[in-house]
Design a protein around this nucleic acid. Structure first.
Length: 447
RNA sequence: GCGGCAUUGGUGAAGUGGUUAACACGCUGGUUUGUGGCACCAGUAUGCAAGGGUUCGAUUCCCUUAUGCCGCCCCA
């Protein structure tokens, strides 16, 4: 048997419905915020990620899917979304468009060569946003609130927003130096991993799980103390706007993002759910004011976030949130002989073209089997074809809710179905009792 | 890249160094000469991840590989 590659997933059936629903919510919320969809290639020149994401980050140095194409070009399957969007921004000269800033969102697969575990696959799906061309803290706040609101819209409750600031380039570099100087004398107190981090990525030491209780850690200099006046002011404004939007957050000075391009605001949204795995960061992002120029574009500010949909679904499942996904069909058409079968396929087409969700029998089951099938499909109505009735241009219809059965003239069928199915409207409401908390998307219009 | 634990039918799984690998769900058929969801009956894995080894004999013991899960590194 040929199996799927390690760390990849087939998504189908009920699971696929969840993904489609989440995609729909994302599309709708993005539309309200007036972010436009952007689709960039799944593979790009290897150089893009090296220059964009950072040479030294593990994600680029050892976790990318690299290959050379038949023309000997070095290519890489994208490990994240921002670099491609920024490349596109530059290449398509979006900085010259009339409407600024550029607000875009993406939703697609990313690839990282990692050891899979819960909440971590080699092929992962992320959606995210990028806003290019505004340095205003109001955008930082909007982007964070956008992520939070999508989670709320889906009904997710156990989330926590952590924010921090790395300051501008100057502040960040100064802080980095200070931190290295601070830890150097204490190097022997640190764990093996942190010893390596001191060289490679000193900011990450602050996030260490092993050493987090050490005295050295607690007394370590904080990013906030090394901000210049302007950076501090920026950060305060971001917080002020978040307060205005009533987004709850916590300042966590240990948050540093792994990718090199971040400066100023960085944030993480984590799932605070009992028993959730160690990969509990659902979304993360921040500001990257140097990235566009790094990649050869004009000096342009940017801010964005990315969210792993796989993890998001794990979180929704963990909270036992049932998404409002319809598992019903309007009608199931049954038949026994060939004459009826022909009428069945014809009727299917006609009803489908009139907007009904209709299915029929495909495996020559007995009528009893067809009833079982119809019931399994949660069909609201059963249409039973019978040669005798068909001679009179009639069909038998059984309402699966009321169990009543009527013989209907084919000329009035559409009207009859409309009428019968309207009774199920109440049913739809009942089905959604679980989301009356006000977070469910299907009640938005009422509010 | 490192460590620990797993892998039995369509599904959830029990189990043993030795004749027919439990049980349940599902599915198909029947009881009902065209009416399901209940009930009863029958059928439904020549095979226990793959390859190799130990053995008279392995699904059961050992090794290798693959995949999955949990944690670390890293990261959304």
């Amino acid at each position: 048997m040929i199996t799927k590659p390690k760390g990849t997933y087939d998504i189908y059936g009920e699971e696929a419905k969840k993904w489609k629903y989440i995609d729909k919510v994302i599309d709708e919320v993005m539309d309200k915020y007036n972010y436009n969809f952007i689709r960039t290639p799944i593979f790009e020149s290897t150089e893009l990620f090296h220059r964009g994401v950072g040479e030294t980050t593990d994600i680029v140095s050892k976790e990318t899917y690299d290959f050379t194409d038949r023309g000997n070009r070095n290519m890489t399957l994208r490990p994240e979304g921002t670099a491609g969007v920024v490349r596109s921004y530059i290449e398509n000269k979006m900085y010259g468009e009339a409407i600024q800033p550029i607000k875009v969102y993406y939703n697609g697969t990313m690839y990282r060569y990692e050891r899979p575990q819960s909440g971590r696959d080699r092929e992962l799906t992320q959606f995210g946003v990028e806003v290019l061309g505004s340095d205003d803290p109001i955008v930082d706040a909007e982007v964070i609130s956008l992520a939070v609101n999508i989670f709320k819209m889906l009904g997710l409750k156990g989330i926590k927003v952590n924010i921090n600031t790395l300051g501008d380039r100057e502040s960040r570099d100064k802080y980095r130096e200070t931190l290295v100087e601070y830890f150097k004398p204490h190097i022997n107190e640190l764990c093996e991993d942190c010893k390596k981090r001191l060289e490679k990525n000193p900011l990450r030491i602050l996030d260490c799980k092993v050493d987090k209780d050490l005295d050295v850690m607690k007394k370590a200099p904080k990013t906030i103390d090394y901000l210049n006046k302007e950076s501090l002011e920026r950060f305060n404004q971001v917080k002020m706007y978040l307060d205005t939007l009533e987004i709850e957050y916590e300042v966590n000075t240990n948050i540093v993002r792994g990718l090199d391009y971040y400066n100023h605001t960085v944030f993480e949204i984590e799932a605070k759910i009992e028993g959730f795995g160690s990969n509990n960061v659902l979304a993360a992002g921040g500001r990257y004011n140097g990235l566009v120029s790094n990649l050869g574009g004009p000096a342009t500010c940017g801010v964005g976030f990315a969210c792993g949909i796989g993890r998001l679904i794990l979180a929704l499942d963990k909270e036992e949130i049932i998404l409002p996904i319809s598992n019903k069909i309007d009608a199931f058409i049954m038949y026994v002989n060939d004459e009826e079968k022909k009428e069945a396929i014809k009727l299917c087409q006609e009803l489908r073209m009139n907007g009904f969700k209709v299915d029929t029998e495909y495996t020559n089951r007995s009528l009893k089997g067809q009833f079982k099938q119809a019931d399994r499909l949660n069909s609201k109505l059963f249409i039973i074809l019978n040669s005798e009735d068909l001679k009179n241009n009639q069909v038998k219809i059984k309402n699966n809710a009321t169990k009543t059965e009527e013989i209907i003239d084919l000329n009035y069928l559409i009207y009859y179905l409309d009428e019968q199915l309207s009774d199920f409207e109440y049913d739809f409401e009942e089905e959604h009792d679980y989301c009356l908390e006000g977070n469910c998307h299907c009640h938005d219009e009422e509010e």
